[in-house]
Simulated scan of single mutants.
Amino acid sequence: MRSLIRRKTRTEYHSVGASRSGKTAAGQGARRDPAPSRLAYKVHRLWLTPLFRGALRVGLPVGAVLLVVGLYLSNPDNRAAIMGSVTKVQRSIQERPEFMVKLMAVEGASPVVDDAVRQMLPIDFPISSFDLDLEAMRQQIAQLDVVEKAALRIRPGGVLEVAITERDPVIVWRHDGILDLLDRTGHRVASMTARNGRPDLPLIAGMGADRAVREALELIATARPLGADLRGLVRVGERRWDLVLASKQRIMLPANDPVSALEQVIALDQAQEVLSRDLTVVDMRTPQRPTLRLTNPAVEELRRIRGREFGEDPS
C-alpha cells in the first residue's frame, strides 16, 4: 500500500514539475528580444557620424535658405529692385562731401603744358573721387612728349594734384626740314619753327642722330675750346659724326672712339693752328693717319710754290 502511495506521489510530482517547466518555457518564448533591428542599427551608427550630424544641423538649414533666396532672385523684378537699392546706397556713400573733388592743381609744369594737361583732362567738377581713374589719367598725360614723369593724387580738401616733371631739352635736331628739341636720352621734347628759337642749344643733323645724343653731347663738350666756331654735328651713315665749323670746315671723325680723335685735332690746332689754315676737311676716320684737304686756292698756291722750287714755269 505504501509503495503504491509513493509511486502515485512521484508521478504527480513529475507531472507538476513538467507542467511548471512547460509554463516557464512558454513564458520565456513570449518575452521581447532586446537586440535592435538591422535598420535601427544602421540608422544609429549613421547618427553617430560627425559629418552626418553636421550636415543635418547646418547643411539642411543652409540649403533651405539658399533655395528660398534662389527662388526669390529668379524673378527679374526682384533682382532689379535689389540692384537699385545697392546702387543708391553706394552713390550716397561715394557722394559724401569728404569724397568729392572740387578742383585740379597742376604742379611743376610750364603754362603751355599746364594748358595742355587741362585740355586732356576735361573733368566736370565737383566729382566723386571714386569716379576718377588716376592711373588711366596718368598714362594719358605721359603721352605728351614734354612730360618725363607724371604723378596724380587727391589732396585733403578735395584737390586733384597733378605733379609734372618736364623733359629738359639739351640739343636741337634738324631732319627732313624739321627742327626738334631733344633731351639727353634722345627723346623728343617739342618742335621748333626756327633755329633762333633756341640759339643757346647745340645743333645736330642727319638720320639717326637722335639715337646718339649722348655721344654728340660728349663731342660738343670736347669741342668747347673751338668756341663759337662750332656750328654743329652731322650724322653720317647713321654710324659716325662730322663736326662742322663756321668756316665750313669739316672734321670727319671715326665711328669708334670719336672723342679721342677730336682731342687730337684740337691739340694739333692749339700747337700749330691747323684749323686757321686754308683747309676744307680734316679727315680723322683713320686716327693713325690724319688727312688734310686744302681749298682750291691753297692747292694752286702749293703748286706754284713747288713749281718755283723745281724751276718749272708757273703758267
Rank of each mutant, 00 (worst) to 15 (best):
S315P: 03
I266M: 06
P111Y: 06
A80Y: 01
T9E: 12
L39Q: 10
V112F: 02
V113Q: 06
P50W: 10
L226C: 07
D176Q: 12
K8C: 10
A271C: 02
G84L: 00
A194L: 01
D200M: 02
V89A: 01
L46Y: 07
K102S: 15
L134H: 06
G227E: 07
R239H: 13
G63R: 08
R303M: 11
V106N: 05
D200K: 05
Q270K: 12
D114E: 14
P122T: 06
R303I: 11
V170K: 07
A55N: 11
V244R: 14
N196V: 04
P202C: 02
S191L: 06
P50Q: 10
D229T: 08
L279V: 12
L233M: 10
I141F: 05
Q28Y: 01
R118S: 07
K23A: 15
K88N: 05
V274R: 02
L179N: 09
A298G: 10
R6W: 09
M83W: 04
V282Y: 00
T49V: 14
A223Q: 04
G63L: 15
K149D: 12
Q143W: 01
W241K: 09
V234L: 15
V68S: 08
A150M: 06
L51C: 01
A150L: 04
I305Y: 06
E12F: 12
P290Q: 02
R79A: 10
L152N: 06
G311E: 12
V68Y: 05
L245P: 00
F310C: 03
A80R: 09
L179K: 00
R53F: 03
R118F: 06
L4A: 14
T165D: 11
A26Q: 12
Q143R: 14
V62S: 13
L279G: 04
V117H: 06
L253C: 05
V117L: 09
A271M: 07
R57F: 12
S74Y: 07
V62W: 13
T11W: 11
Q139A: 08
P156M: 00
R7W: 10
E215I: 01
L73Q: 04
